[in-house]
């Protein structure tokens, strides 16, 4: 398999303080890879660098064989990378339908977009019921579903999800992961950032453990799940 995303010695710093200290990892086509770690380990900083929201101070990011280090976020969408940001980030003052349309902003095939929105509605009926409602009036779980649906409308090859389970009730988390698995099964490569290590490793193919800005463990998700060090640090013994 070929690497869809290859990160080499990535460094991110905020005002001289290094949040990411030269990490390397890869995501192969068709995989679901997870990056787990405690709060402040640098998970979101990594994603921010990958999605062009912060400029890395060192290292390279290669996507589909092209160097995309520091490419601004609006240009990444066209290449097939979509980020579903932490805290959902739906447009509260736009309707559900408009939010989905924004996800397809870079595309021009209007008829196909509307068909895909219908597909999303089929996958997540709750959104269909609320299509004309302002997104700000949705519950947290519904907003997360909307954010994922919106990201899918960019027709990404690589979908990056930042803490999709954050702040949601267990039942809702289950639903969200059903949707993520469905998306992965349909062939989209997924990079999943999660604080909930158990959940992430249960669903992903491979995993990387991030600690204070460095990757300390990596490997098959099932193996990591069984690893005593991971168990001790992230799975409550």
């Amino acid at each position: 398999m070929s690497a869809l995303l290859e990160v080499r010695k990535l460094e991110v710093a905020y005002g001289g303080i290094k949040a990411i200290k030269g990490i390397s990892f890869r995501v192969d086509e068709g995989e679901m890879v997870t990056l787990i770690g405690a709060n402040g380990a640098g998970k979101s900083s990594t994603l921010r660098a990958l999605s062009g929201l912060v400029m890395p101070v060192g290292g390279t990011v290669t996507y589909n064989g092209k160097d995309v280090t520091g490419v601004p976020s609006h240009a990444l969408v066209g290449l097939g990378i979509a980020l579903c940001p932490e805290g959902r980030g739906v447009f509260a003052r736009l309707s559900v339908h408009e939010n989905l349309l924004m996800g397809a902003y870079a595309r021009k095939d209007k008829a196909q977009i509307l068909r895909e929105i219908d597909e999303i509605y089929g996958m997540i009926p709750r959104l269909k019921e609320r299509t004309a409602q302002l997104a700000g009036t949705l519950s947290g779980g519904e907003q997360q579903m909307l954010a994922i649906g919106r990201a899918m409308l960019a027709r990404p090859k690589l979908l990056m999800l930042d803490e999709p389970s954050m702040g949601l009730a267990p039942l809702m988390v289950e639903k969200i992961f059903e949707i993520i698995n469905l998306i992965a099964k349909r062939g989209t490569t997924v990079l999943l950032i999660e604080q909930n290590a158990q959940l992430a490793l249960e669903n992903a193919n491979r995993g990387y453990v991030l600690e204070s800005g460095e990757i300390t463990l990596s490997g098959d998700a099932k193996a990591l799940l069984a690893d005593p060090r991971v168990k001790a640090a992230y799975l409550g013994g």
Partner: peptide, 17 residues
């Protein structure tokens, strides 16, 4: 819609392309 999106959240609007 893009104008309203940018008004609400520039970063996220950027992510949408």
């Amino acid at each position: 819609a893009a104008m309203r999106a940018v008004a609400e959240n520039q970063k996220i609007a950027g992510l949408m392309g």
